[in-house]
Amino acid sequence: MFYNLTTVVLHDWRTYGEMRRLALLQYGLHTVEDNLPMQTLEQGLDVLEIMRNIHVFVGKYMYNLNNQVFVEEKSNNKHLNTINISHVANSIRTHGIGIMNTTVNFTYQFLQNKFYIFSQFMFDEQIKSRLLKDLRFFVDHKTELNQMYPYERAEKFNFGIKKLGLNPDGLSYLDLFRKLITQIGNAMGYVRMIRSGGRRCLADATCFIPDLKAVTDLNKILEDEDLQDSTKKVIECFKRDINNLVDNFEEATEYFKLLIKVFTPVFRNPQNIHLKNFYIIVPPLTINFVEHLFICKERLNKKNRAGAAFTDDGFAMGLAYIIELLNQSTQLNSLHWFQSIKAKHAQDRKNLEAQKAAASKEDDKLQQTLSLTEKRLNAFEKEFHLLFYSFNSARIFFQS
C-alpha cells in the first residue's frame, strides 16, 4: 500500500516512512518492506542533474531574486517546473553536503567558458569603436548633459546594433550579449540557492540540538563519564556528526567571495584592457533588457504564450557580478543612468499631458492612441524601477 501510494504522489514517501517507524516503535508492528529505492527525492529536480547540465539549466530557466526560485522558460507540458530552496535542501539531504563544493566547481568551469565569449564580444572592433565614440561624447558634453548619460544615445546604440545583422531567431548582437550576461547571472543565482539550500538542510538537521554553543560542554561531560568501550565508540561517532553539523552551520563558505577572488586577477589584468569601457554598454543593455521583458510580460495575456515570462533577474545578477569583477562601480555611478531614465520619463509624461490638453474630446482615435501611449509609458517606467531595485540588491551580494 505504501509503495503504491508513493508511486502516485512521490513526495509522500517521507510520510509513509515515518508511519512505518511509528508502527514499529509505538505498536511493535513489523510492516513489510516498502521496496522504495534508496536516495529518493521528495520533489523537484535533482541538484546532481542540474550540476551536470548547468549550461542547459541557465539557458532554460529564469531566476527570481526576491523569492529565490527558478522558473522554467517554456515547456511542452501544461505546467512549468520550478526549483526553490526546499528542492535544493532535499537533494543535499539525499546526496550529502559535499555536493555543494562540487556544484561551485562546475559553476566555475561554466563561467570560464562564458567569460571567454564575453571577452570576444568586447574585443569586436565595431563594438569597441561605438563604445569609444559614446564615451568621448559623454566626456565632452558632461556639463550640458547635467552629468547624466543621455537616454537617446543609449537607444540609438541599441537600435544601431541591429543594423549589424540578426541571427536566424531574429536576435541582434546586443540581444545575444544580454542573454550571455543573464546566463552568468543565473549561474550566480544558482550558487546562492545552493548555499541557502545547504543552510536550510543544516537548520533542519540541527533543530533538535537545544544549544549549538553548548556542544563543547557535552564533549567534556562525555569524556568525564566512565563508560564501556563499545559505548565510547558510539559516542565518538555521535560527537563527530554533531561537531560536523555545527561547524558547517556556523562557518558557511562565502561562495560569492570565492568566485570574485578567482576571476578578479584575470579581469583586471592589463592584457584585458578592452574590457575597461564595459560600463558604457550598460545603458543600451538595460534598454534592451527592459524591452525584452516588456514583450515577455505582454505575452502572458495572450493565447500563444511562447516566450512569455514574468521574471528574469539573472540579468541584474550577472551585471552586478561583472561590474564588481571589473571594479567599475564608480564609473557606472558617474553616468547617473537611472536618474537620466527618470528625467526622460518625466519629460515624456509632460509631453503626453500637453498632447492630452490640446486634443479635442471628440477625436476618439487620438484619445485611444494617447491612452495606449500612457499605458506603455507606465509599463516601461515600472520595468526600469524593478530593474533598478534588482540591480542594487544584487550589487550588495558582491560588495567586498
Rank of each mutant, 00 (worst) to 15 (best):
G44D: 09
I117C: 03
K60T: 11
K60W: 02
V47E: 05
F118N: 04
K114W: 02
F70L: 01
I99N: 02
I85W: 02
I99A: 11
D124Q: 14
M122W: 06
V69C: 13
Y61S: 05
I117V: 13
T82D: 04
G59K: 06
I92G: 03
N113V: 04
S91I: 08
E73M: 03
K74H: 08
I99W: 03
F110T: 01
M62D: 10
K114L: 12
K60G: 08
N53P: 03
Q68K: 01
S119M: 08
H95G: 03
V56Q: 09
E42A: 14
M122S: 01
G59V: 00
V58H: 02
S91N: 11
F121M: 09
G96C: 06
N90P: 00
I97S: 08
K60N: 14
S119C: 05
F70M: 01
Q43C: 06
V47I: 15
N81F: 01
Q112S: 10
F121C: 01
R52N: 13
D124I: 02
A89D: 09
N76D: 08
H87P: 00
M38H: 08
G44V: 13
F115G: 05
Y63H: 08
V56R: 10
N84E: 14
I92F: 12
T107M: 08
E73Y: 15
Q109P: 00
V69E: 13
V69W: 01
N64I: 00
N84P: 00
M100I: 12
H95N: 13
Y116G: 02
K74E: 15
V88F: 13
N67A: 12
N105V: 03
N90A: 05
M62S: 11
M51W: 01
Y108I: 06
H55Y: 09
F115D: 03
G96T: 12
Q120H: 09
N53G: 07
L111R: 04
V69H: 03
T103H: 09
S86N: 12
N66L: 04
A89R: 00
L48S: 08
N67I: 05
K78C: 04
N101Q: 12
N67E: 15
V88H: 06
F110R: 00
G59S: 07
F106W: 01
Q43E: 12
H95D: 10
T102W: 04
Y116L: 14
I50L: 06
H55R: 11
Q68P: 01
I97G: 02
V47D: 05
L80I: 09
N76L: 06
K114Q: 15
R93T: 13
Q120S: 14
H87I: 13
Q109D: 14
H95V: 07
N77Y: 07
Y108G: 01
H79Y: 10
Q109N: 15
I83Q: 05
Y116W: 04
F121T: 11
N77T: 11
Q68H: 14
G98H: 10
L41P: 05
A89K: 00
Q39N: 15
S119D: 12
A89N: 02
Y108K: 14
T82K: 10
I83K: 03
G44L: 11
Q43S: 14
E72S: 05
E72W: 01
N66T: 11
Q112G: 07
D124T: 12
R93Q: 14
L48R: 14
F57P: 07
F123T: 08
Q120C: 09
